[in-house]
Computed example of a mutant assay.
Amino acid sequence: MLELLKKVASTYDEILQQPHRTEIARELRDEEDLFTLLCFSEMLGLPNPAFYFTLELYPFVIERFHDWHLRMGMEKSPLNGIRCC
């Protein structure tokens, strides 16, 4: 009985989330784009007061940098020190 109730609750939750999946995915992508811009803003010439704190995040963010600059409409990396293309 408990398994059936969990399955019904899970199905109901999926039905409620279905129309909003694209909105959620878009919001997560926009949030990641903003975070990437914050991390690399100093290299792009924008002053970043949090540069020191974002410095240790570069190894994790660099892997996604290529996808980000393509989404932003830049064919090649805008940063001289980072070659991803």
Results as ranks from 00 to 15, higher is better:
Leu2His: 15
His20Trp: 15
Glu31Asp: 13
Trp68Tyr: 06
Pro49Thr: 07
Leu4Gln: 15
Leu2Gln: 12
Lys7Asp: 14
Leu28Met: 05
Phe51His: 13
Ser10Cys: 11
Gln18Ile: 07
Ile15Pro: 08
Arg64Pro: 01
Glu42Arg: 09
Phe53Leu: 14
Gln18Asp: 15
Met74Ile: 02
Glu63Ala: 10
Leu4Gly: 12
Gln18Arg: 05
Ile82Asp: 00
Gln18Pro: 00
Glu63Trp: 06
Val61Asn: 01
Met72Gln: 13
Thr11Gln: 09
Ser41Met: 02
Asp33Ser: 04
Ile82Met: 01
Glu42Pro: 05
Ile24Glu: 06
Glu32Arg: 02
Glu31His: 12
Phe60Ser: 15
Leu38Arg: 10
Pro59Gln: 04
Ile62Val: 06
Arg64Thr: 04
Ile82Glu: 00
Pro49Ser: 11
Arg21Met: 10
Trp68Val: 03
Glu32Lys: 07
Met43Lys: 10
Met1Trp: 14
Arg64Gln: 08
Gly81Cys: 05
His69Lys: 06
Glu23Asn: 07
Met74Gly: 02
Leu2Arg: 11
Phe60Pro: 01
Lys76Met: 08
Pro78Gln: 03
Ile62Gly: 04
Leu38Thr: 03
Leu37Cys: 06
Gln17Met: 15
Glu75Met: 05
Leu38Tyr: 04
Ala9Gln: 05
Met72Ala: 09
Leu5Pro: 01
Glu32Met: 06
Val8Ala: 12
Met1Phe: 14
Leu34Met: 09
Ser41Ile: 02
Tyr12Ile: 13
Gly81Glu: 11
Gly81Asp: 10
